[in-house]
Design a protein around this nucleic acid. Structure first.
Lengths: 343, 343
DNA sequence: TGCCTTGATGTAAGCGCTTGCATTACGATA
DNA sequence: TATCGTAATGCAAGCGCTTACATCAAGGCA
């Protein structure tokens, strides 16, 4: 391939029509309803299409046909395996249903998310996949005004309106916290992703609080550090928590990446897991079973969730009827990083 | 938010114009060149915009202004951390430069990739980011015909034409293989992703062959298994290779995920790494330093590559001049999974 | 032979937007 | 007061496409 030259103006239907010596209508029919065109005309047109490198202008087509068969998705980041896997499944299912996926990411920023949502809507998305419920009212209002099918996923919160396909972050984390308490842990510390603008992270922390409060224990004693997503940041938070007294006997992490950071740092600090301190994760991504000791965590059915979300969203679009939210099961997966408290 | 009702027809510029009692031209100016409109008119128009939930129709806008400030990217899969991180950096840099990113994935299938490329082009992408050089000639021809700026990344192959920002997979793997040979390994086995349609994977294997051949050793002795991306598949391949005789003293893997699978399986089989068998990876994603023993692998500067790719592609678009390919450094990172051969 | 059906193709409107040009109003200048 | 520049706004063309409707040729039938 020779180096790029000046961007040539894209060939249009009319260029093709001229080259094939037919009208634009005939070219259009060749492409959309080939049965309505005679064989030799079709052949001539298709040759012209190939020769000119013609590709129909999507904007023009969408403008007149009012449908794009495109779904937009805005995720917080592509960098997190947790979204990646679910989104891949989402896209595969969408493809099978004849839709195309366009992804944008918001870097966990509400303002960027709004921008991306508007952009996807402007691009004619027939429906939208969004993560979690946290967003400015004006965005929700905008979407609602449009009557655009929107599906929220990675979360299932019965208190929220709107359709969602996801799991109950709060209840799942509560279950894990209860098991932790059952083992006898009382000095609980928490490492979480930043809570602002992140209802999933908040729900997980609330789940821990629920469990603690239900046992009649004090919520005040709960030490909590918010930190950015990352192995190193998780390790730093862990080190800081282990300085507090009484020393935590378990560190519950809001996601597996933070937990892996904690486990690795524990080793550096000469602490045995779970002998000296237990550590738990959330998400059950690959890394959870790779680290040593393997993480006790909450398993989230990413792929199933992505596929279910795709089917649900398409149903909203095509049948245009009331579609029910769907709760998926997220259950505790026992491995080795959670044990009895020391002593 | 109430349940979605029938998708309302999106409000148009004309609706806004009517509501604000001005012409469509004025509304357009309010949105694009607010300085050219009087203060009170602008206020009135913006109120109407908000009230109606108006969002400009992207297709119509692109059609007349011939620029979309949109970059398309087609990656093999979102599920692989290696692409995720680089792409996130790519998108962040793009945003800083005032462009929007649209991502599509091909599931490692050339036909799907072609479809996605055409779709992104039809959507008016000002430029394209593609992974690797392997694609059907008709696609390359199509892109070239369009004169559309295309940047290839994740690979830097001096033999290829076209602009790329990446690293030399072959040379990097050759270097790692040479170190392996230096340690005394002679029974080398290889686990790789499927080689068809994947020039990066082929280049890596070729790098190993280069090193072996340069020592005057036989290439025939190289045992090689192709398998899909995954920890389990990597483990299975490893187990199969360890059945062959003479038993490999080192298993070189085409990527970290396969290598992690191999390491985990080695433990299951009761083999010590690197005592009984050495294992190497490629990519240096998070998981490489999480697994025990940590992987000796090739470090790829994902984020730097993504950011550099963004800058390079935008330069191609805006300055429309000849832009040089850029080779980034990918170097061996020593950790613990590679040692001397046993005995 | 004349009329109608059928299939293939052309004509032209209009989708929502931007923008060059025309128009208007108004204050400044001579 | 006549003239002009300027700022604000409107008018209308046209971007590339689909599609309802019109047209036309060819063959079937009475």
């Amino acid at each position: 391939m020779a180096p790029i030259s000046a961007p040539r103006p894209a060939p249009t239907l009319e260029d093709v029509a001229r080259a094939a010596d037919v009208s634009t209508a005939t070219v259009s029919r060749c492409l959309n309803t080939p049965g309505k065109v005679s064989d030799d005309t079709r052949l001539r047109v298709l040759q012209a299409v190939a020769a000119l490198g013609y590709a129909p202008n999507f904007g023009a087509r969408a403008m007149v046909s009012r449908r794009t068969r495109t779904i937009g998705a805005v995720i917080p980041t592509m960098e997190n395996a947790i979204f990646a896997r679910g989104l891949q499944a989402f896209q595969e299912e969408l493809r099978a249903l004849g839709y195309q996926l366009l992804v944008a990411s918001s870097s966990y920023r509400q303002d960027v998310e709004e921008e991306q949502i508007r952009s996807l809507v402007a691009r004619g998305a027939d429906g939208l996949l969004l993560i979690g419920h946290d967003r400015a009212p004006q965005v929700t209002e905008f979407l609602h005004q449009r009557g655009l099918p929107v599906l929220v996923t990675w979360a299932y919160d019965p208190a929220q309106t709107g359709v969602s396909v996801g799991f109950d972050n709060r209840r799942a984390m509560r279950t894990l916290a209860e098991k932790t308490l059952d083992l006898g842990h009382r000095e609980i510390a928490v490492i979480t992703a930043p809570l602002a603008d992140n209802d999933r992270a908040r729900a997980r922390v609330d789940g821990i609080r629920d469990a603690v409060a239900a046992r009649g224990l004090s919520i005040e004693g709960l030490r909590l550090i918010e930190t950015d997503y990352g192995i190193t940041t998780g390790g730093d938070a862990f080190a800081a928590l282990m300085q507090t007294r009484p020393r935590p006997t378990v560190v519950m992490c809001g996601n597996d990446v933070l937990a892996v950071g904690a486990v690795k740092r524990a080793r550096t600090l000469g602490l045995s897991v779970p002998g000296d301190v237990s550590i738990t994760g959330f998400d059950d991504i690959d890394i959870a079973s790779v680290v040593d000791p393997a993480l006790t965590t909450v398993h989230v059915p990413h792929r199933a969730m992505g596929a279910a979300a795709a089917r649900c969203l398409i149903r909203m679009i095509e049948e245009n009827g009331a579609v029910a939210s769907q709760e998926l099961d997220a259950h505790v997966t026992w491995r080795d990083s959670l044990g009895r408290p020391p002593g």
